[in-house]
Design a protein around this nucleic acid. Structure first.
Length: 323
DNA sequence: CGAAACATCCGCCACT
DNA sequence: GTAGTGGCGGATGTTT
């Protein structure tokens, strides 16, 4: 895999009639807010009108901006908020501009139904993509060349990133930040925004269950076992061992874990280990040592890290160091 | 790299 | 009758 150092200086978000304010605001908040006083990076940030202003947001707010599509020429990243309609083809000049951004090595990031814009541009063909769970079937049906993943918060396909419903756009933007500047910076921005630095699990856990069922509030050993596990990531953590700690059979433990946390035990453990590995790599530890402290063989760490983060551990450490 | 050993996950179902 | 539990087996995925 080619490991280009990720440049992130110039970020644009596009607006059009009936643009959703929340998704627009996510991009403005993450990339358009000056946090240089906290030692955090700043960007050349622009809100770019796709259609001739004055525009009306969803909700009826009047929007204006001096920037037009030619502003995208220098963008390293273009954010597409939720598109207004799953049936309407977006303006051709926008689609062309987005293809050009990707063509010259820039990245595009869609939020929610913004995935339809990228799909219309042909940028999702042969790739995996995410969108709001209520649109996944429509997207898959209308664009058979796209592999729709209905079970994640966002999908990073390199030059093309798609995120799921509404607030998942925050996760995707923080992910981009993490790639460009490391998780210290991403975590600092998350802290300032008062959101979790990294949410595990997909949007499946939010579908029709905004509040996870808490049948026996408190006395349920799951949270305690999860806490214990993150303190002991260097040890073997099989489902069976965790079940013993939770005083349940492995069958029941696995079932309740999935219901409560939204992920299967082994997947969750692996996600915790990858997060730990990432932090340790940033501290400059050798890959062998990182593997040991994450309870994994070095070969396993390498393959799982590559899969989870899209880079090898050593390349990640090097990129992080070089910034 | 691929094969063999191993773990996980999940539907099914009997049992409280 | 209803709800939760947990053993089993096989498909699938992971590790060595």
């Amino acid at each position: 895999m080619e490991q280009r150092r990720m440049e992130l200086r110039d970020v644009c978000v596009v607006v059009f009639d009936e643009v959703a304010l929340f998704e627009l605001a996510v991009a403005c908040e993450v990339f358009g807010t000056d946090r240089s006083a906290q030692g955090l990076p700043t960007y050349d940030f622009a809100v770019v009108a796709v259609e001739e202003p004055p525009l009306r947001s969803a909700g009826g707010l009047a929007l204006d901006t001096p920037y037009r599509l030619d502003r995208l020429d220098t963008a390293d990243l273009v954010v597409i908020p939720a598109w207004r309609s799953v049936t309407e083809r977006p303006p051709e000049p926008l689609l062309a501009a987005l293809r050009e951004v990707v063509g010259r090595g820039g990245r595009v990031l869609s939020e929610c139904s913004g995935a339809f814009v990228l799909a219309h541009a042909g940028l999702l063909d042969g790739r995996r993509a995410a969108t709001h769970w209520s649109y996944t079937e429509r997207l898959a049906a209308d664009f058979p060349a796209v592999t729709v993943d209905r079970d994640v918060l966002y999908v990073d396909e390199g030059s093309v990133i798609t995120s799921a419903g509404t607030a998942a756009g925050i996760d995707a933007c923080l992910h981009v930040l993490r790639q460009a500047h490391g998780s210290e910076v991403a975590n600092a921005v998350a802290r300032r925004m008062v959101v979790p630095p990294h949410r595990d699990g997909g949007q499946a856990q939010y579908v029709e269950a905004p509040v996870p069922p808490q049948r026996h509030a408190g006395a349920d050993g799951l949270a305690a076992v999860a806490d214990w596990a993150v303190q002991h990531l260097d040890e073997p953590l099989s489902v069976e061992q965790l079940a013993v700690r939770a005083h349940m059979s492995s069958r029941t433990f696995a079932r309740r874990f999935l219901e409560t946390i939204g992920e299967t035990p082994a997947r969750w453990v692996l996600a915790q280990r990858m997060g730990h590995a990432q932090r340790l790599l940033e501290q400059g530890l050798a890959v062998e040592e990182v593997a040991r402290r994450c309870g994994l063989g070095a070969a396993t760490l390498r393959s799982q890290f590559a899969r989870a983060r899209g880079t090898s551990p050593s390349a990640y450490a090097r990129t992080f160091r070089a910034r």
